[in-house]
Amino acid sequence: MAKGNHSIVTEFILSGLTEKPELQIFLFLLFLGIYVFTVVGNLGMITLIGFSAPLHTPMYYLLSSLSFIDLCHSTVITPKMLVNFVTEKNIISYPECMAQLYFFLVFAISECHMLAAMAYDRYVAICSPLLYNVTMSSGVCCWMVAGVYTLGLAGATVHTVCMLRVVFCKAEVINHYFCDLFPLLELSCSSTLINERVVLYLSAFNILLPALTILSSYIFIIASILRIRSTSGRSKAFSTCSSHISAVAVFFGSAAFMYLQPSSVSSMDQAKLSSVFYATLVPMLNPLIYSLRNKDVKGALKKFFVKIKL
């Protein structure tokens, strides 16, 4: 079919999480609460780390960057999803859809590599504690964070440029609650082979490589912890890693389920459920995981509230 015969789509309709009207208000209130909690939690974590001198360490510098990524990640997705719950048709223009796709990918990819950077930080802290201040200097941390964002921007740019070459001429309803890669490719009436290969290859790089980095780091960490003779020493070492392991398991598990399989195999209903975890719940849970299971953060929080009362 000639390109001139296509009816080019200029806007899309997001189908949302569910089409059941009786669930719309409940889901609106639920995800509004999740979003408010996400914003307060991540902004609170950034503020606490910024104003608490004891938390001015590489570990918390990276955690502050993760909180910023989570805040932006959630903001790209959730407000538009909330609109979908209270409007009959949630229309998004083609430029807005491409912009949402781009920024979603920037922060999703950045989160993958930031979690890997945090695993490396824990590896250095436990396996080479005497060299920690040199290995994880402020300059090194800045370069690591810059590298994380560079990979995020590069990956998102490649995906979005590939998506811009796709011709949309089928039904303009996106079977998702935001503009994601596979739901958009389902609407294409041009070849998507290149796009699907790019998704698979870059997802393997941006999910498997950080996952292997994290796995390698924790193999060395566990081996080092097992050499500690005292039970209290082992417990303290494990506690510094437990929060990070919890965050990694939820994020990488749901992201891998979504992107590391061909689009012909994945179900969009399953994809929606999976994306709720890494795009909505993980940004909310990370501040909880790192605050409730971290004595330094809880101590800094108590001091912060004391200062406010004074």
Rank of each mutant, 00 (worst) to 15 (best):
I245R: 12
I219S: 07
S203T: 04
G33F: 03
I214P: 04
F107M: 12
S264P: 10
I126V: 13
V161I: 15
A119W: 02
I207D: 03
Y120W: 15
L131N: 12
F304V: 11
S65M: 13
V148Q: 02
M118C: 09
I228S: 05
L63R: 05
V265F: 14
E11A: 11
K272V: 00
Y259S: 10
L185I: 07
I219T: 11
M114H: 03
S138C: 11
I126F: 02
S232V: 09
K302M: 08
V167S: 05
I214W: 01
T231C: 10
S52L: 06
A300Q: 00
K303M: 15
S203A: 15
S110L: 05
R227T: 12
F252N: 04
Y94A: 13
A223L: 14
S239Y: 10
V161W: 05
A171T: 09
D180G: 14
Y278K: 01
D70H: 05
Y290R: 09
F252P: 02
H6P: 02
T75P: 01
F31C: 00
F31H: 00
K307C: 07
E172H: 15
N195L: 00
S188R: 01
R234G: 11
Q261V: 09
N84F: 01
S217A: 15
A146Q: 13
G16S: 02
L164R: 10
G50E: 12
F104E: 02
L101N: 08
A271I: 01
Y177M: 00
H56G: 03
D70V: 04
R227F: 12
H244F: 07
T160E: 06
A99G: 04
F305I: 09
I69C: 02
L301R: 08
H73S: 11
C127H: 02
T213G: 14
D296C: 08
V9P: 01
L131Q: 13
